[in-house]
Nucleic acid binder design. Structure first.
Lengths: 242, 242
DNA sequence: GAGTGGTCTAGACCACTGG
DNA sequence: CAGTGGTCTAGACCACTCT
């Protein structure tokens, strides 16, 4: 028997799409409360339960955050709770200090073949490259090289990076209106080259984690490509499998 | 103002607890269908919607699997779909072949301090140690050393491991009634020692991923501790951050 | 107390599976 | 066709937050 409706989409998913539009268009911005379930139900002409189910899914995807008695908020990287959502590196001991980002360089370039492919832009189009260090308790643990599409990050400077208190993604969100939704990391083991070894204060040739990350914003659009080299003598990469 | 009920637990969570008991006790076993939502609602004296919400959570935790039109099933590691739930290693190219497990050794020992701590058993109590190779397209890529509490895995032998077609966890589930629910992995970069290098057919000193995994069954009880060394010249560890 | 999200119910109907 | 999970509704009440 043929499917009766091969493209069947339940009502709450259509509502979800409408809400995603409100997010992408900036009608609702990070950290702000969205309208109450009652209001949304009225606005979309459905029952509260249907709106609820749409919100449920979006909360599960970390797009929204529910706060009982207060309202539903657009998730934000400014929220300290989402600090470790993308950083999986953990100190071996009881060290509870916050990691500190130390921007080193920031320059313009043209996208090569690989960067263009990963960022889904034209080869030769402008990109911005950032190098920075991540320190735990004043100890350098990660060297990152970050590739950003120039189109989106116009006006990004080293001074801006150095002046920012908070995570990179919180800066991207606040200054460029770009919210990072999800990421993919490819992890390999590599030997430290001389330059990296110096920066991480380890010996040349020491095994490091190479963590290559592609980060996506709304609509699964890739907007960041970074490669980090992690020293794992006093830290480890923690992954929870569910 | 004091909280009116500091230990408030909604009805659907209580239902969930009851269903967890049914799972742990073996009343419902992996791969089998559980009673329909209607039946469960009658059995527990609640509405279908409440049962539904309990099942929703358990499905989100990969304890149950819903199949529209058929019923709700207890998740099983025999299901091919759950094969890559815990193995995050991916070949670089288009290689779609299944990894093959090659058990090498299996012997008895007494738990040392660390093994005892991780497995939450007494130091000196019996454990079983398994060494095995994981091959992709006949190429050795991972050497695993696996520590299991002897209490639980009585009767496990090298022959049993070698005779088994399927994943380790599917064997554990079928032969020992132990279902693995979740795991934590700690990843570091290390240099290959001579013995490992030979087994993985790489040079001594080559950087490898060290992946230490603790696996838990129902009730967050740790029942497996393993350390794998991954060669990442033709494969990488893929992690999705959401 | 007013407003928010969170729970629970009862009932109707839809989509999918299998005999 | 009967039985399953999936959707949608409308309404009642609860827990939490802030004023």
């Amino acid at each position: 028997m043929a499917q009766t409706s091969p493209t069947f989409s339940p009502l709450y998913r259509q509502i979800k799409s409408l809400m995603l539009v409100a997010l992408e268009s900036g009608e609702w911005s990070p950290g702000q409360a969205i309208p109450s379930e009652q209001e949304l139900a009225a606005r979309f002409g459905v029952s509260q339960g249907t709106v609820r189910k749409a919100i449920d899914e979006m909360a599960a995807e970390n797009l929204l955050v529910r706060k009982q008695g207060k309202g539903t908020y657009v998730a934000s990287h400014n929220d300290p709770r989402s600090l470790f959502r993308f950083l999986r590196l953990v100190p071996e001991g009881e060290d509870l200090s916050h990691p500190v980002s130390v921007p080193l360089e920031c320059w313009r370039a043209k996208a090569g073949q690989e960067a263009a492919r990963v960022l889904a832009i034209e080869p030769g189009s402008p990109i911005i490259i950032v190098r920075r260090l991540l320190e735990f308790s004043a100890k350098p643990v990660v060297v990152d090289e970050i590739y950003l599409p120039g189109e989106v990050f116009q006006g990004l400077t080293l001074e801006m990076l150095q002046g920012w208190k908070g995570s990179l993604y919180s800066l991207f969100e606040t200054r460029f209106g770009l919210r990072m939704i999800r990421a993919e990391e490819r992890i390999r083991a590599v030997a430290a080259d001389r330059r990296t070894a110096e920066m991480l204060r380890v010996k040349e040739g020491v095994p490091l984690l190479s963590v290559e990350r592609v980060t996506f914003t709304y609509g699964d659009r890739p907007v960041e490509w970074r490669r980090g080299l992690y020293s794992t003598d006093e830290h480890f990469y923690l992954n929870e499998l569910n």
